[in-house]
């Protein structure tokens, strides 16, 4: 059941939104696919719901100096259809498998990142594109790499009054891929997921979901794989390093630590095989 004594406001502009979100127990509402569920379950009891869907500054997908600007309110369905984002395949795949049709029409990328779920289907692939998160707040605007945005399960660097304005993606890599395990083929949260990208200089980036409190990158694996032709020996070694590097919690209902460790290997291997098939990483 939803909190009974909650107020709702839909600010007309960014400044108003920021001042509203500075209030105690205020909560930003975008697509609502996480927030409304959490309110119903009593995990979130806001006194004030600030509906940010009308904020023009948070909309849109536009090209920007070789990269792409993705507004926080861009929905999964928009990501899937966006011609500009097709070069960022992993995030298109992640957005395309999230929830179901109706969820993808509402769920936003800012919401998925801001919710800071360990397994966010947009957040995990987004990481491999090295985006900057653009945050707007009482002190104005600030940027930081997405990798530094998460602070724990459900926790981020956002301060009261701050909201995600959008993401600045650098020019796309040559290759990227997102894969995940679910218990059914349809709607499910990822039990374990992995995204990988290879840029034109052969730099490899790897992130995983549902193996740590936050979506996480693995520098030691990236280092091992980057700047050299991918051989099966190197891939095998990297898979072992990745598998050893993760320490998933044992309480997940979606996958056990042993399975996640095995899938870390399988997914990395599959992703890099695919890269080789497509002519990258040589």
């Amino acid at each position: 059941m939803m909190p009974l004594h909650m107020e709702y406001v839909k600010p007309g502009g960014l400044a108003e939104a920021v001042s509203l979100l500075r209030q105690d127990d205020a909560c930003a509402l975008a697509g609502g696919t996480d927030v409304v569920v959490q309110m119903r379950e009593g995990k979130l009891r806001p006194r004030l719901v600030v509906d940010i869907k009308g904020l023009a500054e948070l909309q849109g997908i536009t090209g920007q100096s070789g990269g792409v600007w993705v507004g926080a309110l861009v929905t999964m369905a928009e990501i899937v259809k966006s011609p500009l984002l097709q070069a960022y395949r992993a995030v298109v795949q992640g957005a395309g498998c999230m929830g179901c049709c109706e969820i993808r029409h509402r769920a936003t990328i800012g919401g998925n990142v801001g919710n800071a779920s360990p397994s966010g289907d947009a957040a995990v692939p987004l990481l491999v594109f090295h985006p900057q998160v653009v945050i707007h707040g009482p002190g104005g605007q600030r940027h930081l790499p997405l990798a530094n945005f998460f602070r724990g399960a459900g926790k981020t660097v956002l301060q009261p009054g701050e909201l995600i304005k959008g993401f600045l993606l650098p020019p796309p890599p040559a290759f990227s891929l997102y894969m995940r395990h679910t218990r059914v083929k349809g709607m499910d949260l990822a039990g374990v997921s992995l995204a990988a990208a290879i840029d034109r200089q052969g730099q490899v980036t790897v992130s995983m979901g549902a193996v740590a409190p936050t979506p996480t990158r693995f520098p030691q694996v990236e280092e091992l794989l980057s700047g050299r032709p991918l051989s099966w020996e190197v891939i095998a070694q990297a898979a072992e390093v990745l598998s050893a590097a993760i320490t998933p919690r044992a309480t997940s209902l979606r996958a056990t630590p042993a399975y996640k460790k095995e899938m870390a290997k399988v997914f990395l291997h599959t992703a890099l095989s695919r890269a080789l098939e497509e002519g990258f990483g040589q």
Binding site: L29, T33, G99
Partner: peptide
Amino acid sequence: CGNGECGACTVIMDGKAVRACLILAVEAN
């Protein structure tokens, strides 16, 4: 179900299928 998992509450809002249990009535203004 009340949390978007079953689809029984699906309606069309501004041309798109949505789950009515995950939307506040005020949002539909």
